[in-house]
Amino acid sequence: MSVTHDEVLKIARLAELEVSEEALPLLAEQMSRILEYVAQINAVPASEGVKPFVPGPDALRFRADEVKPIPLAFGPETLAPAFKDGFFLVPKLGAFEGADL
């Protein structure tokens, strides 16, 4: 299992984590080694059908892991003048100074 620099950068973007260019080679090398090490669990056969083990009170159980649509008639981008990457874009606070609010 070899993790490329591009994959590290992609994962870092998903994790909202800045990774410097200098840190990339070591990080990619260490992640590759760790992933190679943990992948040995795939050598264990016939674990399909095994129910996940959840410690704690019996009442505590996982919900089904499924993607559901957001129950809005219109997407949030239709509700604001500017919307990007899941965020509403608003003026910087300084822009309000002196404004008649």
Binding site: I11, L14, I34, L35, V50, F53
Partner: peptide, 30 residues
């Protein structure tokens, strides 16, 4: 940082079954 990246990786689309789901099954066996 390393563990956050690892965690994000094993949960990401395409790797979830090979890592996270399999690890949950291994936990049950242990």
């Amino acid at each position: 940082r390393r563990r956050i990246l690892l965690g994000t990786y094993v949960l990401s689309s395409g790797y979830y079954d090979a890592y996270y789901r399999k690890a949950q099954q291994m936990r049950a066996l242990i």
